[in-house]
């Protein structure tokens, strides 16, 4: 009864060969296609570098004004605008301006990338139960697999730098927008959709005139979640060469610099809160038509 006490395992030699086989074949794959894949992402890299340079080189008062205007357009609340300006002033005063701009650049690009991939994917998913049953487990894996695990193949394939960092952020931040777009479109009132159909609306007219507008609050919740999760990945992304607020945090961990870690960490929190408030109140404003005349 030996197999009851000790779990029957694969032969050690076999296991080693198995792992070696996977490692070698992936290495082979990355040697053959790595350059091609890297150049595929070049436009993304140029855009990211361009945006980062733009943010860093623009005089800081101008950036603050632009961000304040965006906060106003998004949230229509002086409270949020004032909070935003103060946060950026404090961040700048503590010498974290350049890092914050780098982080802002990568978060913006990651969010844009997630939106442009996630929303169409979510729409496709809402159209087909089959696709939904395929994509959902993939999203589950993307969200739960420890980030370090997928950093390994990404770094093997693309080396260390901005693009692999961006991909790592996107892998983690993509699921919510896909999920919530899919959910939002599926939750659109069936009778309203029937009404559109009964008046002879085409597929495009239904999608852009009814489904997406009515799913917008949910889609927006997805965008909000995506931004939050992208910010959460900043520190991990800095491990593979992304500049920004994550790097000082990483340095603080290895050298036990409490203050440095705290300050940069709080700057990330401030960014998160600002983005969250702006995008949430924007999402709420999209639902104004739901308010009734009776002040409910």
């Amino acid at each position: 009864m030996n197999w009851l006490e000790k779990f029957p395992t694969m032969e050690r030699q076999e296991l080693r060969d198995f792992k070696k086989y996977i490692d070698l074949s992936f290495k082979e794959f990355s040697r053959t296609y790595g350059d091609g894949i890297e150049s595929f992402f070049d436009p993304l890299l140029y855009f990211l570098v361009w945006l980062e340079k733009l943010l860093v080189n623009t005089p800081w008062p101008l950036i603050i004004i632009v961000i304040a205007i965006m906060a106003w357009v998004g949230a229509r609340s002086w409270y949020i605008v004032a909070g935003t300006i103060c946060s950026f002033l404090v961040i700048g005063y503590f010498g974290m301006w350049v890092d914050t701009m780098s982080t802002l650049a990568i978060i913006s690009v990651a969010t844009l990338l997630c939106i442009s991939v996630g929303i169409p994917l979510g729409i496709l998913m809402s159209r087909s139960d089959r696709l939904q049953s395929i994509v959902t487990p993939v999203l589950d894996v993307m969200q739960t697999i420890p980030s370090f695990v997928y950093l390994i193949p990404v770094v093997m394939l693309l080396g260390i730098g901005k693009v692999p960092g961006l991909l790592a952020v996107c892998i983690y931040a993509l699921p919510p927008i896909v999920r919530l777009t899919n959910l939002g479109i599926r939750l659109v009132d069936k009778e309203v959709l029937e009404a559109a159909e009964s008046f002879g609306a085409s597929y495009r007219q239904k999608l852009f005139g009814v489904q997406i507008p009515l799913a917008l609050p949910n889609i927006f919740a997805g965008v909000n979640q995506t931004i939050m999760m992208a910010l959460a990945m900043v520190v991990i992304a800095s491990m593979i060469g992304v500049k920004g607020l994550g790097l000082p945090v990483l340095r603080a961990i290895s050298n036990q610099y409490l203050a440095l870690g705290m300050l940069n960490g709080l700057a990330i929190v401030a960014l998160a809160i600002i983005f969250d408030r702006i995008s949430q109140s924007f999402g709420k404003r999209l639902q104004r038509h739901r308010e009734s005349a009776h002040g409910v």
Partner: peptide, 21 residues
């Protein structure tokens, strides 16, 4: 069919089915 729905037959629904937005 789309033409039929657009020009020949229109529909009124039990729960109104208006476009809320």
């Amino acid at each position: 069919l789309r033409g039929f729905r657009r020009h020949r037959a229109s529909m009124v629904f039990q729960k109104f089915a208006l476009l809320p937005h």
